[in-house]
Design a protein around this nucleic acid. Structure first.
Lengths: 337, 337
DNA sequence: TTTCAAAATGCAAGCGCTTAAATTCGCGTT
DNA sequence: AACGCGAATTTAAGCGCTTGCATTTTGAAA
């Protein structure tokens, strides 16, 4: 009983063949009740667990899906992943997570690493990546779903929302409240279609009112608190200064609020600020953040379901699009009240 | 070229045996330079990646370590994991993450699931779990390290800090500032030695001044924003109300600050609040949170290093203890200034 | 009782890789 | 020229499991 017990040990004790034990483990309904219980007793006796490698080799399945996300340090991914993982676990599938730190090359590496581990499904964030990568996935027959972004006619299965439309709606609201000097702190757009779409959305809204987002009013920074604060300080040093700062996500907005406070200004009286994502953080800020609510958990669950359907080669594998909602809280005020 | 290429394909093209190809992949220095480059060319030609299952079966190693954390939704774990993962990745080890949602039974399940997947190393949070579980791990010879907690004479390898001492120091500081009516919002202590130790630490400090933390001044709630706010509201409804609320982590403290604001009170003038962890959130709160700084990233890295050493059966496998630091920011004021 | 399909089980061939042991090779010594 | 030795390579035996097919058992119908 020293070494790890094998199928053979269990089979021996139960007085059946290894095939039967395997069947008890994988398709219990195909084994008679009596035999089954005998086998189960033997399994319990040895505290037997199947060897993962042996199983993977023989069946060519790992019951593992991989996800590559930019970073776990952003609450939105953490939350979505948590939901994804829970939903997958219900069907006995394990989730392996890798991070790319918003770097496209690193993402490609990580995808390769996961493929090497034999994942039989993949969840990827956004759509922006080399075509060759998509081809590799299709050639290998590894199903995948893209999450967090969606656009009309996206050729791949995805579960997300229209970042551009949501950002446009937010910016429109800002303009409706009378703001004209509008600045934006965006995330890094290279290799990030969500960040890119959000900038486009804001531009759409401004253009519709014959305004523009010129160079000096658009800062692009990593999604980090301090970076957001720095960007805000720079934007606010302009004369005249912007009356509203639209941010690419809540973390940047939190940074902006910090900066505003540190400059002795007040939000929203002197400057309005908006976020994007609606993470918990938005609620604890002072003033509470006006932001775009994104249903991260539901997206995670939906992604799990879609991926499972793809894996099972089911028919209904249409993309899923979620609605976002504008949540008004207090960091955005109308101009000149 | 349709199906997945195997070692044999590569060997055939390179004109060598599969053993040689295997060696090129695993111990390149044992193969002559000329052969090696021929094999490498063949590998590139087929875009070959070894089959994970085959490898695991033959070598009985997976180069995978597992971690079971309570939840990804708490920034401290996310951050620590990120560091852990990066450090492991450098040596080609993959991290698989599972979550227990602070439930001991669920944690045990997840550990079993990871063992079933053949992880050859495990990172676990805290020390509180069934002895039987530790025995299983040792019997199977799976190395593990406990993180986030540390105490003198802990019999297992761990990488953490002294939660009790840190909480004691925080509470002492509160008392030094003149507070006498001190309340605490703690995390759920069942199966959570960190939460338990933090309560003990606060008690230590109070007892040293002949004060006590009675039932009505200690609330135990999940580590969630709303729960923290509710607890704070309840504590503040007492007469006379506490002058300081010590919280089990920053999220609870953020909730407490929200509650204070919603009651029309002011922190720290009416009530002081302290946190624990020092996540980004602490910085954006208003007032910024006085809290205990915990070096999460460094702990993650150290855990990775220790685990790798254990796996390699090296000698130097001593536990690592980190120092914490009290960070004074503004949410804690002296009484009656 | 006999018959026969369906259900239950066993047989055995791999799955793709690693690795101990055996073999071959090249080269400096004697 | 024969020898010995270490380095490079091959041989081949598994690792633990799944699964198509063959075989046996079961139970109902004839």
């Amino acid at each position: 009983m020293r070494a790890r017990p094998t199928l053979e040990d269990v089979a021996g004790l139960a007085g059946v063949s290894t095939a039967t034990v395997s069947r008890v483990l994988n398709e219990p309904e195909r084994v008679s009740a009596e035999t089954r219980s005998r086998v189960e007793a033997a399994v319990a006796h040895f505290d037997y667990t199947p060897h993962f490698g042996g199983r993977a080799l023989a069946s060519n399945r790992t019951n593992t899906v991989g996800a590559v996300i930019p970073t776990m340090e952003n609450a939105i991914f953490a939350r979505g992943l948590q939901a994804l993982q829970e939903a997958l676990a219900e069907t006995g599938v394990t989730l392996v997570v890798a991070t790319s730190n918003y770097d496209p090359e690193r993402e490609a590496q990580q995808i390769r690493a996961l493929l090497g581990r034999g994942v039989d499904g993949l969840v990827l964030i956004g759509e922006a990546r080399d075509l060759a990568l998509y081809e590799t996935l299709e050639r290998r027959g590894v199903p995948f779903v893209l999450v967090w972004s969606w656009r009309p006619d996206c050729p791949w299965p995805c579960v997300g929302f229209d970042n551009r439309a949501a950002a446009r709606a937010m910016a429109q609201r800002v303009l409706d409240l009378g703001h004209r000097r509008v600045a934006m702190i965006a995330g890094v757009t290279r290799g990030n279609d969500r960040a890119t779409a959000r900038v486009k959305g804001v531009r759409d809204a401004l253009t519709a009112r014959s305004l523009r987002l010129d160079e000096s009013n658009l800062m692009e920074t990593p999604y980090q608190l301090e970076a957001g604060a720095d960007a805000a300080r720079r934007l606010l040093s302009a004369t005249p200064r912007p009356t509203a700062i639209v941010c690419g996500n809540d973390v940047l907005a939190a940074g902006a609020l910090m900066a505003i406070r540190s400059l002795g200004l007040n939000a929203p009286d002197d400057v309005s600020v908006t976020g994007f994502d609606d993470i918990d953080l938005a609620l604890v800020l002072d003033p509470p953040l006006t932001t775009v609510h994104v249903p991260h958990r539901r997206m995670g669950e939906a992604a799990a379901r879609l991926l499972l359907r793809l894996r099972a080669r089911e028919d209904d594998t249409a993309s899923v699009v979620f609605e976002t909602a504008l949540v008004e809280r207090g960091s955005l005020a109308s101009l000149g009240t």
